[in-house]
Design a protein around this nucleic acid. Structure first.
Length: 482
RNA sequence: GGUCCCAUCGUCUAAUGGUUAGGACAUCACCCUUUCACGGUGGCAAUAUGGGUUCGAGUCCCGUUGGGAUCACCA
């Protein structure tokens, strides 16, 4: 049997991290076994549809390298791949299911208000729906429909006893048929509910493995009843636990939690995000943690999927993002850093700047913070020159800077190595510690006590003219202090 | 509330019924060092709880506690 998995998001305008992880597992299950990964858009709830949401789904999957073999944009042999374009298919199967005895027509008024009214309060109203319409004869029902009466198709749960099904992650699950509700399969607007559409589509599209959140475990027996009524074989089920914000809340848009695109905007690399979420609920069985999507394809095994929820830890993602940044080539880093360096328009040595930045940041957004003094040096307090460890104060600093300026004016090679040697020599010749020369230079160049790179790297980044200009400014500032 | 599911360091997790319960992030200390990082070394830190089964339980069984899910013309 050919392995075929599907990612079936609703276009709600938001690529939730948990959804992305589910998509990843679907993709990996297919690709680790030479199967196909299918993209299907579940837009049967017109109230939730968000314009442009489908494009976010496309761009996100492409960005992380999860290419689909069939989908709305590229087609395939099992289309259409957008549920709203399949309404006739569902209607046809719904009517057939009624004839097969797996469902019935229901003419009851919309029960929304009653369903919403009792909030979280547990009551005996939570018993299996006893639908009076179930006893209407098929002929009568068909007459009423022909007469234009509004109706829904509702599932029949006639079985008694216990339903058992196997799940790859959770093992055998037993649920009593009495617990199952006779839910709506086809809504009065003619569109199916998820409960119906996913069964029809998964079967028609020959999906072999259904991967979804574990909140569907309890309704899975209902889906199996539909497969059974049609005489179809249910797929292999892979229910995965949720990704949590903390021990009691799922990661969600409502909580204002970060989406994939939010994280990218904050300077996280798509590859790092993907790598991190792969490990939220799955592990390779050894101690390795850094994986490209290619490597994941090679080693993924659904048997190593976890049963319990995992809390999304931004701190560990941040560390991993730092790994990806450090492991990038200088060229790649320069390319990803460029958008964050736009605020610097003066001529600087960007190669040196990137070289000092790359090992020092964990998210791209930190680039802006760390380079805020590069374009213009802002006013800074003089007590920055007081540094116990470096044994400097304003007095020492002034003298150091005055010693440094003429030497730098005569410097031949303006590169880090020779500048560093030069300044060390200045220190030795004047019986000063290296830090007593270098630290004041750093402060003079940056207006900060800590900077990416040291004094001489900054000098290289700025070039001779700007370096000397900032040093003179600092000397003036120190002279003016009294 | 009924039903289903889950439970190892703060977090992500590893451990054919036999390990000093391992790794990673975070944290702390030290080393390296022109600051800050990177890197290196080391420390702290877990089997929720009570019973069984067994020569031996993180691992199997039952109870308790805690948490999650579900009970929509949402998915």
């Amino acid at each position: 049997m050919k392995v075929r998995t599907r990612f079936a998001p609703s276009p709600t305008g938001y690529m939730h991290i948990g959804n992305l992880r589910t998509a990843l597992y679907e993709y990996l299950i297919a690709k680790s076994q030479g199967g196909d990964f299918i993209l299907r858009i579940e837009d049967t709830d017109q109230k939730r549809y968000v314009e442009g949401a489908v494009d976010i789904i496309y761009s996100t999957l492409k960005r992380v390298g999860m290419n689909w073999d069939e989908g709305p944009d590229i087609g395939g042999n099992y289309g259409p791949y957008v549920q709203s374009e399949r309404r006739n298919i569902y209607a046809e199967y719904a009517h057939r299911l009624v004839e097969l005895g797996g469902a019935h027509y229901c003419f009851c008024k919309n029960t929304e208000e009653t369903a919403d009214s009792d909030e979280d309060v547990p009551t005996e109203s939570h018993v299996k729906l006893k639908d009076p319409c179930k006893h209407i004869s098929l002929e009568d029902a068909q007459k009423r429909i022909a007469a234009g009466e509004s109706y829904v198709v509702r599932q029949n749960i006639n079985k008694k006893g216990t339903s058992v099904f196997h799940d790859v992650v959770y093992g055998d699950i037993e649920i009593d048929y009495d617990e199952l509700d006779e839910g709506v399969l086809l809504k009065s607007d003619g569109l199916p509910t998820y409960n119906f559409a996913n069964v029809i589509d998964d079967h028609l599209m020959e999906i072999s493995h259904v991967v979804r959140g574990n909140e569907y475990i309890s309704s899975t027996p209902k889906y199996n009843l539909i497969y059974e009524a049609f005489g179809w074989t249910p797929p292999i089920y892979v229910h995965v636990p949720p990704v949590m914000k903390d021990s009691q809340h799922k990661l969600s848009k409502r909580n204002g939690d970060a989406s994939f695109q939010d994280l990218v905007a904050k300077g996280y690399l798509p590859e790092a995000i993907l790598n991190y979420i792969a490990l939220l609920g799955w592990n390779p069985g050894d101690d390795r943690e850094i994986f490209s999507i290619q490597e994941l394809k090679d080693i993924f095994s659904s048997e190593r999927l976890n049963k319990s929820p995992a809390i999304f830890d931004i701190t560990k993602l941040t560390w991993m993002n730092g790994c990806y940044i450090r492991n990038a080539s200088a060229e790649d880093f320069a390319a990803m850093a460029a958008p964050y360096l736009k605020h610097i328009t003066r001529p600087i040595d960007r190669e040196m700047l990137c070289a000092v930045l790359q090992p020092r940041i964990e998210t791209l957004a930190q680039i802006s913070e760390q380079t805020d003094f590069m374009q213009d040096i802002s006013d800074y307090p003089l007590d920055l020159y007081d540094n116990k460890k470096m044994k400097t104060d304003a007095e020492v600093s002034l003298r150091s800077l005055q010693l440094v300026v003429p030497v730098l004016q005569n410097a031949q090679d303006w590169n880090n190595e020779s500048l560093f040697e030069t300044l060390k020599t200045v220190a030795q010749e004047n019986e000063l510690k290296n830090g007593q020369i270098l630290y004041p230079v750093r402060v003079a160049l940056s207006g900060k006590a800590t900077t990416p790179g040291g004094a001489t790297e900054l000098a290289v980044i700025f070039g001779k003219d700007e370096t000397l200009r900032r040093l003179s400014l600092a000397i003036q500032k120190l002279n003016d202090r009294k």
